[in-house]
Design a protein around this nucleic acid. Structure first.
Lengths: 129, 129
DNA sequence: GAAAGTTGACGAATTCCTTCGTATTGACCG
DNA sequence: CGGTCAATACGAAGGAATTCGTCAACTTTC
């Protein structure tokens, strides 16, 4: 009669993952400073979330050094793919086309982005990868 | 010092929205039956969630009839677009290209889907919409 | 080596979400 | 009308998520 832990990283967790992907790896302090540029969070709050993320397996922790160094367990691409697959499943009936449609009509999609997408599509059309 | 209500519909809420979009509008019973095909949820549970969704503004309720009829406040397309924009912001640094890349490399993307996407791109390339 | 500063562990407080049990209200039938 | 059944409201239970305060442990610096 309870709520199951979210399969996806939460918003806060994702922000920390973004920081770690950019840093490669980092201490709580480094992550906190990175986040502070956009977000107002206490140092211990970041630490706590990162501890929980480590328990969940989202982060790896090197305890042999002080301060401890954290890194993401999965790559950004792996996580992004999982998030897209999840959203596809939950909100787009599994049809990537519908999802891409909404992405294309986003205000964020510049002609440049569109060319980028076209290039991706071409690469898929002729052969692999 | 607490948790803010999620800006996005939760998983359960999205399932109910999916049902209502497909039904057009429906009673709790109809939604429950629709959901029962994939999910095991009590009748009152569905009702409760739908009540909360109504409070949140996600659903509109016609109380003049019995049983009450609910419908989604926003269209599927509107919601999908918001979800994509949100994911774009949180996990793809605002770049639709990166998102589409992950969508394209999804196992769910058949050649047929790819053609569909190509058609969308073409439509965007030449002119409006 | 003691003081001062960092870092990390722990747990509390609070709200949200999911799930129902129970109670109340409303509608229909006889 | 009163009874019955469905529909709705109410509220509670309990785990998840977010945020810190507090204190202990460890480092660095005089």
């Amino acid at each position: 009669m309870a709520r199951p832990a979210s399969k996806r990283p939460t918003d806060t967790e994702l922000e920390i993952l973004n920081a770690l992907w950019e840093l490669g790896a980092g201490t709580v302090r480094e992550v906190h400073e990175h986040l502070s540029q956009q977000r107002d969070m206490g140092h211990t709050t970041v630490l706590k979330v990162m501890q929980i993320m480590t328990e969940k397996g989202l982060l790896q922790r090197d305890e042999s050094v002080r301060p401890q160094v954290f890194r993401a367990s999965r790559t950004q691409a792996q996580t992004q793919k999982a998030l897209v697959a999840d959203l596809l499943e939950r909100a787009f009936d599994g049809s990537p086309g519908n999802l891409v449609l909404q992405a294309l009509t986003s205000r964020r999609t510049s002609p440049e982005e569109r060319r980028k997408i076209q290039a991706l599509l071409d690469r898929h059309e002729k052969g692999r990868r």
